[in-house]
Design a protein around this nucleic acid. Structure first.
Lengths: 249, 249
DNA sequence: CGAGTGATTGAGGATGCTCAAACCACGTGG
DNA sequence: CCACGTGGTTTGAGCATCCTCAATCACTCG
């Protein structure tokens, strides 16, 4: 545990979980809530820029993001970095590590984050006692897979302009759904955009400049304000899907 | 059901499943085998080039690949194609569709394939009765996620030469593990390679030519023979991991 | 033989890269 | 209050990679 991380024990009981209030998340039955409450081992608060999980580690924990956001990434030996996806409130972090034994990617915080800590050793007992929750976990994993498919399509086959447009609407939409943003501003760096899309920072910058000329976005004090999400969606060939209730935890 | 597909009912009982003999797959308990046997609705045989599943469809089924292989892909409106991953014996196909409601990608056969057909409506009863199998399914989904992360790293951050090298060892290794290949030949088209790696066919061809000059691979009668997997792995910065037993079905 | 599929080649150009420098906002410490 | 360092953005120049277009070739199949 580095100094950027701090674990507090059950400071936040599940009944008062801030995510439960948000209506995109499904409701729990009383017994489920009770079980998850005991499954939960505490909260983990990490600072912006801190590494939450590192590739290769054998972490005994599994997390759900309660607030803030971050990104999952992989590195090549020479330092080239690929951001693989972003994690936001309600997302499960570290499931791969739980099942496959070892983390295959790292996670870093893009803002102050609070994570709900679970013991991965107890995961199977959840499967035994609460098939509904087990099903939910698989659902969450499938959704992640789905996002990865999309990202792959973007990185592989879209042009730079389409890529940036895609990424920005994608992140904006998710952050709205998870209740991360109200004002449409994303505190993200052009380096992150570049590393997500597989292009260089310089070219990313020039591409963003084109979007700014068109008045679709604005880059300000270390973040991105999206002025015209519809135009970006149009450029990216992206269509929002109405979000039904979804499971978490 | 198109004419390229043909469904036969329980022509192959689970006790005689060819995958069960392969020692990379985990053994079933008698009751599990019994349940899966009833969960199975039949075999689906598809011809090379046939579409197994299409994006947007609401398919009532879920499959496990028994023999042959294929690929999952997504299309952009103007026809640009991104191959997202390959499916091989033991892989689950259509799980996303089962959970999320609608297929988000298509699947096409690269060879004659036989798939084991399940009813997705019964998936939840599997979760209720056999937590071990439920856990297995999540494990499989996590493994898929892990492969996608790797593919994203490749497409986003590796050079063309590294990309081709990576893809070839990746596929070869998987096909060996799943018992698809013994002789190290992959029947795949350069167009597929291009669409997997996010580069054009022409450039793919020139890149493969470079690998051929070095004597690492050989392209012959509509397929690829890998002469020096170690050299490719070296180029790609890829390290094989010893494969433990893994679940399926 | 003719059609179809996939591999191969060349030419010319667009896209995106690296390098390098400058710029800007910010926080720190003298 | 200013000098300085830092992290992130912006710009320009020159070049490598990769693309498109178009033609050709090898092979198979009806």
């Amino acid at each position: 545990m580095t100094k950027e991380q701090e674990l507090t024990h059950n400071s936040l009981p599940c009944e008062k979980c801030p995510l439960r209030k948000r209506n995109i998340f499904r409701d729990f039955e009383a017994d489920e809530l009770d079980f998850v409450g005991r499954f939960k081992k505490g909260d983990l608060a990490v600072k912006k820029g801190a590494t939450v999980l590192v590739e290769g580690a054998h972490n005994p924990h599994l997390y759900t993001v309660l607030s803030g956001w971050g990104f999952r990434y992989k590195l090549l030996e020479d330092g080239r970095r690929q951001i693989v996806n972003y994690v936001m409130p309600g997302d499960l972090v570290g499931l791969q590590g739980s099942l496959l034994g070892e983390m295959k990617h790292s996670v870093e915080a893009l803002s102050q984050m609070v994570l709900c800590v679970f013991e991965k050793a107890e995961l199977f007992s959840l499967y035994r006692k609460f098939p509904e929750l087990a099903y939910d976990i698989t659902w969450i994993a499938s959704r992640e897979e789905c996002m990865l498919d999309d990202n792959l399509l973007t990185v592989g086959r879209r042009t730079a302009l389409e890529k940036v447009a895609y990424l920005l609407v994608f992140i904006l939409e998710r952050s709205r759904q998870s209740g991360l943003t109200k004002n449409g501003t994303l505190s993200i760096t052009q380096q992150h955009v570049a590393d997500t899309l597989g292009i260089s920072v310089v070219h990313t910058n020039k591409t963003i400049a084109r979007l700014m000329e068109r008045g679709h976005v604005k880059w300000e004090d270390g973040g991105c304000r999206i002025l015209n999400p519809e135009a970006l969606a149009e450029l990216a060939g992206w269509t929002a899907e109405r979000a039904g209730k979804r499971p978490f935890l």
